[in-house]
Design a protein around this nucleic acid. Structure first.
Lengths: 147, 147
DNA sequence: ATATCTGCAAATAATTTGCCCTGAC
DNA sequence: GTCAGGGCAAATTATTTGCAGATAT
C-alpha cells in the first residue's frame, strides 16, 4: 500500500540528513489540511492558529522542503505571489484561471500531455515538468459583467 | 500594408491620450533592436548606452506600455524576474526551457492550441491568452553532464 | 497654460539570509 | 557539548510610486 504523505516527508528529511521537528510536523499537518491553492502567507496564518510561535521564515523554509519532497507543487500565475497546492497522491493537472475573479479550475488533457512529450523529444530535451495556464473569463464573471 | 511597430506604438499612445517622448522613442528603438528574451534590467542597460539619462522607472513604465500596445509580450519563467520578448509581427508561441543552461526554444503546436480552446469552451470560459512552459534538459547540457 | 512625463529616491512586496539562542541526543 | 533548527529582524530583489521640476502641445 501507498505511503502516507507524512511518511514521504519523514523519509525525505531523513534521506537528506534533516530531522522532523515540532514546527515541521505542525506545518505539514496544517498544509495537508489546506485545500486548493494557497499562498505562503495564508499557510503562515493557518499555522499561527495552531502554534503562534512559528515564524514566517520557517513556513517558507518548510514549504521549500515540502516541494522538494513532492508533497507540494508550486503554481505561479504571474501576479507576483507563488501559490502552493498538494502534490502527493494527486494527479498532475494544469489550470484554467479567471482573470476577473481569480477562480482556478484544474484541467487535464492527455492529448496535450502527449504532444508536449513529443515536442520535447523532437528538440532532444528530456522533459522534467511543465506548466500550462489558460487565462480567460469564467461563466459567472461573463454573466455579471454583461451590459 | 502592415503598420510598422513604431506606428502601432504611436497610435496606442495617442489613442490613450499619451504622448510620444524622446525617452519613449529611444526605448522603443532599443527594444526593437533587442533579440530573444530579455529582462527590464538588460533593456535598461542597453538604453543607457544610447541615453544614460533615462531612468529605470521610465524603462519599466515604458515596458508596460509596450506590453499594452502589443509590441511586447511577457514571459514569466517562475524564477523571480519577468522577461520580455517581441509581440508584434511575431506568431504566438510557447517555450521549451533548459533548466540547466536557461536556453529557451520557441515552440508551437496547433493541436495543443486547439485543445486549449476546447477546454476553455467546455468550461464556459472565454479564453484570453495562455502560457505554456516545458522545462527539461537540453541536448547540449545532457551531453555535458554525462558521466 | 495645462496636462503629461521624467528622474530620483523612497516605498512595496515577496522571499531569503545572518545571527544568536534553544533544545535534542 | 555539539549541531541542526528556529525566531527575529535585517537584507535582497524586482518593481512601483510620490513628488517636484521639466516638457510637449
Amino acid at each position: 500500500m501507498e505511503r502516507s504523505a507524512r511518511e514521504v516527508f519523514l523519509h525525505y528529511l531523513q534521506d537528506s540528513g534533516m530531522n522532523m521537528t515540532p514546527q515541521r510536523a505542525t506545518i505539514v499537518e496544517v498544509f495537508l489540511r489546506e485545500e486548493g491553492h494557497f499562498s505562503p502567507e495564508q499557510l503562515y496564518e493557518a499555522v499561527g492558529r495552531v502554534d503562534p510561535a512559528i515564524g514566517q521564515a520557517t513556513v517558507y523554509r518548510t514549504l521549500k522542503l515540502l516541494t522538494e519532497s513532492g508533497l507540494a507543487v508550486t503554481l505561479d500565475t504571474g501576479d507576483g505571489a507563488t501559490l502552493y497546492e498538494h502534490g502527493y497522491g494527486h494527479e498532475h493537472h494544469d489550470h484554467l484561471v479567471c482573470l476577473h475573479c481569480g477562480n482556478k479550475i484544474e484541467i487535464m488533457d492527455p492529448t496535450i500531455e502527449e504532444r508536449q512529450q513529443r515536442i520535447a523529444r523532437e528538440n532532444g530535451f528530456e522533459l522534467t515538468r511543465h506548466t500550462m495556464l489558460l487565462y480567460g473569463i469564467c461563466p459567472e464573471c461573463r454573466d455579471t459583467s454583461e451590459h
